[in-house]
Every structure is written in C-alpha cells, then in structure tokens.
Amino acid sequence: MIDVKLVDYLAGLSRLELREGEKQAMTAGLEQIVAYMDVLNKLDTAGVEPMSHVFPVKNVLREDEAAPSQDRGELLAGSPAGDTEAFLVPQAVE
C-alpha cells in the first residue's frame, strides 16, 4: 500500500524533502509499520463511537474579557527573519 509515490505525496503535504536513498528506506519503514497496524482490523469496532477526548469534560469556556497583548518586541525577538514590526517570508502574496 505504501509506495514511493505515496511517500512523495506525504512528504509534499508535510513540507519535507527526502533524498533518493532516504526515500526507499522511509518507504520500507512505513510499509512495515502500516502493515503491522493492520492488526487493528482483527478487532471488531462496529458501532463503537470514536473517542477523540478521553474525559467527559465539555464546555470549557472563557469570558470575553480582554487582557493586554504580548509586547511586540518579545514576540518578534525569536524570529529568524523579521524586523521590529513583522515576521518576514519570501513573496507569498499573489
């Protein structure tokens, strides 16, 4: 099921590049892992509600009350490419 083409597609989605040799190894590794995961098919889960949250906790809400924002300098301090006002990327606007 997992082949190089699919791994290429997943890498594209994930914004990763794999060198040719790496790609083969990754494909084989994922193939093995995914094949193993098929053990789940032995378990009949018909009618079982998928459990996204393990606790019956719900409706955790906050009041609509403003708090001061973070200092801009602090937010931008760790940016690998930014100035004093904004984060910078290569042209992204069409």
């Binding site: 997943l10 995914v34 995961m37 789940l40 889960t45 079982v48 509600e49 998928p50 996204s52």
Partner: peptide, 24 residues
C-alpha cells in the same frame, strides 16, 4: 509522514478513526 498518512484523504477512516474506536 506516518501522521500525514493516517489523516490523509482516503485513509482517515481505516486508520485514524479506527484508532479512536480502539481507544474507546
């Protein structure tokens, strides 16, 4: 990559959704 796979179109139900059922 494994995570992108189990969530990607066409595989979600067989893997991710199944895993959430197994979790239950």
């Amino acid at each position: 990559l494994l995570g992108a796979f189990v969530l990607s179109a066409g595989y979600y139900d067989a893997y991710y959704k199944k895993a959430l059922q197994v979790k239950a």
